[in-house]
Amino acid sequence: MIQTVLKRDGRIVGFNEEKIATAIRKAMLHTDKGEDLQLIHQITDHISFKGDSQMTVEAIQDMVELELMKSSRKDVAQKYIAYRNQRSIARKAKTRDMFLEIINIKSNDITRENANMNADTPAGMMMKFASETTKPFVDDYLLSEEALEAVSHNYLHIHDKDYYPTKEPDLRYCIRQIHIF
């Protein structure tokens, strides 16, 4: 039985079978035959009980695909697979666009942000790739809502945000506890 899920970003969260049901339902709503609540519950229950105690998001999605392919609703499997592929492409495109911006624009705010790093050199460019992909991760997964709001309103500046995941836990805790007055 699935207990926890390993997310793409490395977080471990409690398993929520409703997410499987919602994904299948959305795929069904994009077909001519529409929604089949019995099949949704059947697949959701099967995966919930058949899975390992901890699974990755990808492994769970693979199981959903297999169960849909075994069912009489191949049309739903097709829509589900297509949606997964679109999301994968979108995740890759976001990173690709950021990399292309660094490669194609020699002198801008991004490449000149850090005086200690020359983004025109291959080593500097690689450091910049790492730096720019880490910042959204910090915003999305490490900062509290209060800290993120303080940053967006310029009440707080996090120097070297790209190094934030490596900072001492006490410092991260302090920033999480910020209250806006």
Rank of each mutant, 00 (worst) to 15 (best):
D52S: 11
L143F: 04
A59D: 10
K79D: 00
D45R: 15
Q78A: 12
T121V: 01
Q54G: 03
D109V: 12
A77E: 01
P169M: 06
E146R: 11
N118R: 07
I24S: 00
D170M: 11
V64A: 07
M28G: 02
N116S: 12
A23R: 10
M28T: 13
I175S: 08
I43R: 14
A123H: 02
I60W: 01
T133H: 12
E35H: 03
A27Q: 02
I180C: 01
Y163Q: 11
Y83Q: 10
M125I: 02
A77S: 02
L66W: 13
F129T: 03
L143E: 02
D36R: 13
D32N: 13
H159T: 14
A77H: 04
A119G: 03
I102S: 07
I24V: 04
H157P: 08
E35R: 06
L148D: 05
D109F: 10
E113G: 13
E65F: 11
S71R: 04
T166M: 15
L6Q: 06
D9V: 15
K161R: 13
Q3N: 08
I24T: 01
Q54M: 09
D162G: 11
I180F: 10
Y83T: 15
I110W: 01
M63H: 10
H30C: 07
G34H: 05
T95A: 05
D52G: 03
A130F: 06
S53W: 15
L143R: 05
A150H: 07
A90W: 00
R112D: 02
T44C: 09
D75S: 09
K92V: 15
S131W: 13
I20T: 01
E145P: 10
Q3R: 14
T121C: 01
N114C: 00
M126C: 08
Y173H: 11
P136R: 05
D140R: 06
D75V: 00
K33F: 13
K74P: 04
H179Q: 15
R8M: 03
D140L: 14
D36L: 06
N108Q: 12
D162Y: 14
I180P: 01
F181D: 11
D120C: 06
N108G: 09
T31I: 02
K79Q: 09
E65V: 12
N16I: 13
L37P: 08
T56F: 00
M126I: 01
V13P: 02
Y155P: 09
Q177F: 15
Y80R: 12
R176W: 10
N114E: 04
N16C: 07
K167V: 07
Q38A: 11
V151F: 02
D170E: 12
K94V: 00
